[in-house]
């Protein structure tokens, strides 16, 4: 379980997060939603220590992550997998080398064991056979999936995904959502996902946090979305007239 307690974060003079408290639960896919620029990526980076909060705490269980020394932080990070919004694949390495990198760095597995693990991860993101391509040679959506494969290769306890399905078609998008959801439940890990995607919200939203203007505007699960009265949530989820009509038909309001 990860808790963000009264997190504030400013860049220069602008305060992006203004005292945010929320909990990401274990064994669940925790979603962070919010408009573009709401601070989702910033929150995710605070959680993994790539940014330091101006004030407030990030707690991993009972450990105050924000106050750890670099070395202790690294120990926790070995249990973290993260997918970056821009994938952040190492572009002078092949797909296989990218996914193998954490294995090379942190395990003593044999060549064969590593290759098996890499191929297993590639299979899970439906990219089998793309081992020797370079990131520049595959599509944006495929890069995302390679990024996911790399983030799960070490069987992390905490998985962070920054918009795992932006740039994917609806079908692949769904597959990726299901994959992340399955892994979360199989391994009983804490997963945090930033997303804009309404399908994801309705499919895998075990615990949803809506960010608005630096604060937590709403928290709940996918079953609570439909009959929530929260205006911000409504505005965000049922953004198009089409969806508003659908909702009217379904719930009657």
């Amino acid at each position: 379980m990860i808790r963000a307690v009264n997190i504030k974060k400013s860049f220069g003079g602008t305060e992006v997060l203004k005292g945010l408290t929320t909990t990401f639960e274990k064994g669940k896919t925790n979603l962070i939603i919010g408009r573009s620029g709401a601070g989702k990526t910033v929150l995710l980076k605070l959680c993994v220590g790539l940014l330091a909060p101006t004030s407030g705490e990030i707690m991993y269980g009972d450990t105050n992550f924000s106050q750890l020394s670099k070395r202790d932080m690294r120990a926790i990070r070995m249990e973290i997998g993260m997918l970056f919004q821009g994938s952040a694949l190492f572009d002078s390495m092949t797909v296989e080398e990218n996914i193998r990198f954490p294995l090379d760095m942190f395990t003593n597995k044999t060549k064969k064991e590593k290759l098996d693990r890499v191929n297993y991860c590639l299979e899970r993101v439906q990219l089998e056979g793309n081992n020797s391509k370079f990131p520049g040679e595959v599509s944006g959506g495929m890069q995302k999936r390679v990024g996911i494969a790399r983030s799960i290769v070490l069987e992390p306890k905490y998985l962070f995904c920054d918009e795992p399905n932006s740039g994917l078609d609806p079908k692949t998008s769904l597959l990726i959502d299901e994959l992340i959801h399955d892994i979360t439940i199989e391994q009983n890990i804490t997963t945090v996902i930033n997303t804009h995607d309404m399908n994801s919200v309705m499919e895998i939203g075990d615990n949803i946090a809506l960010l608005h203007q630096g604060r937590l505007a709403w928290q709940g699960n996918k079953d609570m979305v439909m009959d929530s009265d929260n205006e911000l949530l409504e505005e965000f989820i049922f953004a198009s007239p089409f969806l508003q009509r659908l909702r009217k038909a379904a719930v009657g309001k």
Partner: peptide
């Protein structure tokens, strides 16, 4: 700039 360093840091690499 391409967040490769951040990605490595997250893996726990110094």
């Amino acid at each position: 700039q391409k967040e490769h360093i951040d990605a490595m840091e997250i893996m726990g690499v110094n």
